[in-house]
Nucleic acid binder design. Sequence first.
DNA 1: GGGCACGGCCAC
DNA 2: AAACGTGGCCGTGCCC
Length: 607
Amino acid sequence: MQTVYFDIETADADELYTYGPSFCRLAGYAVDDGPVVLTTDMDELCAVLRDADRVVAHNAIAFDLAALEHWHGLDVGCLVDEGRVRDTLILARHNDPPLSGHTDDRRYNLDAIGKRLFSRGKDLSATGESTLKGLAREFGGYDRIPVDDSSYRKYLVRDVELLRAVAAYLSCDTYALREHCVVWRLTHISKHGFRVDVVEARRRLASQQKRVAVLQQRMVQVYGLPIGGKAPQRTKVGVIALERAFTDCGIEPPRTPKGALATGKDVLAALLQGHPCNESLVELVETLRALNGERSVTQTTLDHTGSDGRVHPSVDARQTTGRISVTKPGLTVMGKRDRANVLERSLLLPDEGEVLVAFDLSQVDARAIAAHCQDAAYVSAFEPGKDYHTEMAVELFGDPSRRSDAKPVTHATTYGMGARGLAASAGIGQAEAQALLNTLDSRFPGLARFKKQVRAEAERKHILWNAFGRPMRVEKGKEYTKAPAAIGQGTARDLMMEGILRLPGWLLPCLRAIVHDEIVLSVPTDRAEEAETAVLKALQFSFAVTGADVAVLVLADKSERGRDWADCYRSEKVTWPEVARDHREQLSCLDEHCTWHIERNETRSAA
DNA sequence: GGGCACGGCCAC
DNA sequence: AAACGTGGCCGTGCCC
């Protein structure tokens, strides 16, 4: 049994997939208790790793091994599938799960872990990450530090030694091993990257700049806001001017809970509703809304686009529930619900000669809860052929046609919403909301019992385990809302990961994005049907919690085949014709609310 | 100039 | 006693 501990110094980590073959600069490795060996020969390192029974590194799968696979041809999939890899970042999160709220990455760097596991001496901690940063500053970049620099080498040696010490404290169970396979599969998203419509992105940036300039000018002239900066309406002076503008309209300036001027869109909408005839207020609010509504997704996407014309987003399982974060750029926050920003996704394209297809799991959080709680009525709402929200409408109102009224209530079930919150989200009175919550509890007693039970368990242990064995930390005092939410999201997450694990290997390089209950693939046009069948087969299965009587079906839908990511949703969003790329290729259109043919429509309405 | 909190936008 | 969960990213302002 031979274990190899290793670490690699590289160029800027953000350029993992774009830098070039000299990305890996200096490697350090140690076999079992042996001394740390340094080398610039990555082939030598790969040979050592191939022969090892066990390979250990921090963030091995998403970073070090990924770099060796990408630039030096190491077969990482084989190492992972054979269970030979131990990624101490995955294990550290598994052994000591993060709290929600602050995904504090620094909690999981080697220094921090070392400090928690065996309080390490100050002499070592002082040399942590700052050494490397300092060297990068001194030499003008991570890729320009001389590989024979003694402090660079000393730093690497120390890191491998620290890694070895840390690894001894971290245990690994079957869930953690499965997680290694999950993370490796997800690295394909970063590795292959998502093609960006760079020309269109630049065009949109330019037109956004024009739009903002007009709005800002109005703010300056009418309300006396300061000139300059990216968001003068948010500066101190700007806020004072806005407060005066509200007062001039005869309106008390709205406030946030902390006393600041509130300019969020819900607040502004409520204000308008209260004073529909106040024309000067309407103009002020509309201008403010328009300015606040300007997002920088296009800029962020371009900022992260590499010389290959693609973004290579980071994919991490760092959230407390295990849900996947996709960042740099944040694909999980791109528009979809609102007509004003649904086209954000249209900047992302399939590979040449391919189409994009999105697949999403149907009500997977609720199905996860059903699998856990085993409430007969709740579980039966997910039987094949039934529509969950319609079933809920029948149970809550005795009226299947009130499907849309039932939707917000189901949200309340998983997230522990109270009467006030439900009333606000559903647009009903608090008494009515409370009555609905009571009905929910009486119609689904098993669900109510389950929620009570997980709250109690969280209060006792502060950690909950989902149906797959993922530990999730629950904040003290917040068990009432967070415990059921953690189970719903956490198990839903692993149902999606089960699907990822069931995907046939040829589809892994096709993965482009994951947004919680949705995955996006770029597939060759002539294999689209084959791919769709295979993905749906992987994502859909019957699932039972250990010891449970009744299994719950996990079901998935597929989107249209898209020429860009937004185009995938054209049949889901038929009332927004611009979602379809075909429509955007037309020179003009007849829909006066179209967000694409804006200039033409403006000309038309003026005429 | 980095770190952090806030308040704004957004997703599932 | 009541109870809306998990996040990313931007711009500003303030702190060290």
